[in-house]
């Protein structure tokens, strides 16, 4: 009865692995939410860090604002460039070789670990270009990090557009640009926005690239692009690493996760939204 036993073991394996995965998700979320809820309050969200060492009391308002600004800069800088590249590769590029070169470069960049991107940002943006540890340096570094992510998804979406419909549009004597703006982009808009928001989620959660390029232990809400910023992931790292306050750390982790999930939910909603016909 080897067969029956094998089948049984096989099923056990599948059930067990799925159970482990679901248990892990449940545990991680439950752990952060339950512990974080205890020390979160409106005051925590809306006030500056206080106490000795700094952060032991008070709130995380500058970190929340800082993280949002960093994400915004990263998304803005990366998405313009990534979209242009995706459009170029899928609509204008005539040579297969050039296409492969672009893909290899983008893949290489996707393979560069975030800390090495941070290292680049530190040396080039902060030191050589003299931008200092600032909102701008950190935002751009994050932008470099999420560029490949956006490019790959945007290109995939553009390429999935029905070729026959493109041909029909060109056959009317209409230009590529008009076709792109009136037919293709309206169709791919949801996918592209979803890719950008998802990338924004990554940028917001990333600590490694900003340790050296702009995130600091304490700063007020940034006034300009050249001021240093607080960021949620870095703040969480400092609170735990330096053993400042466990309660505040739980609460910070919860805020960070809620923000990222909010972004992800927007992205998922966009992906699933039926593409309505415009009038």
């Amino acid at each position: 009865m080897k067969k029956v036993r094998d089948n049984f073991l096989f099923r056990m394996w599948l059930m067990l692995s799925a159970l482990i995965v679901l248990a892990l998700v449940g545990f991680i979320i439950g752990y952060i939410v339950l512990n974080g809820m205890k020390s979160i309050s409106l005051d925590f969200l809306l006030s500056h860090p206080k106490g000795i060492p700094l952060g032991a009391e008070g709130g995380i308002l500058p970190a929340i604002v800082g993280s949002l600004l960093l994400t915004l800069i990263a998304c803005a800088s990366a998405s313009v460039l990534a979209l242009a590249t995706a459009v170029y590769v899928s609509f204008y590029c005539q040579s297969r070789q050039l296409e492969t070169v672009v893909h290899v470069i983008v893949q290489c960049m996707a393979g560069v670990p975030s800390i090495v991107v941070g290292l680049f940002g530190y040396t080039f943006l902060v030191a050589k270009l003299n931008l200092g540890r600032s909102l701008l340096s950190a935002g751009l570094t994050l932008g470099v990090m999420i560029f490949p992510f956006i490019e790959v998804r945007a290109e995939k979406s553009l390429r999935e557009f029905n070729r026959a419909i493109l041909q029909s549009s060109y056959a009317l004597g209409v230009s590529k640009v008009y076709t792109l703006l009136k037919l293709v982009l309206p169709q791919c808009k949801a996918d592209i926005v979803a890719a950008v928001t998802l990338a924004g989620g990554f940028a917001m959660g990333a600590a490694a690239p900003i340790i050296l390029t702009g995130a600091v232990i304490f700063a007020p809400i940034p006034r300009s692009l050249s001021s240093p910023v607080m960021a949620l992931p870095f703040h969480l790292y400092i609170l735990t690493g330096e053993g400042i306050s466990l309660e505040k750390a739980y609460a910070t982790a919860l805020v960070l996760m809620v923000l990222i999930f909010a972004i992800n939910i927007v992205s998922i909603a966009l992906t699933f939204r039926r593409k309505e016909v415009g009038r």
Partner: peptide, 24 residues
């Protein structure tokens, strides 16, 4: 739904993983 739940794992920032790793 299950795919969504699994994607949640991918969305959690690595600092939060480190934090839980350290504490648990």
């Amino acid at each position: 739904v299950i795919r969504g739940i699994i994607d949640v794992l991918a969305g959690i920032p690595s600092v939060v993983y480190g934090f839980i790793g350290l504490l648990v």
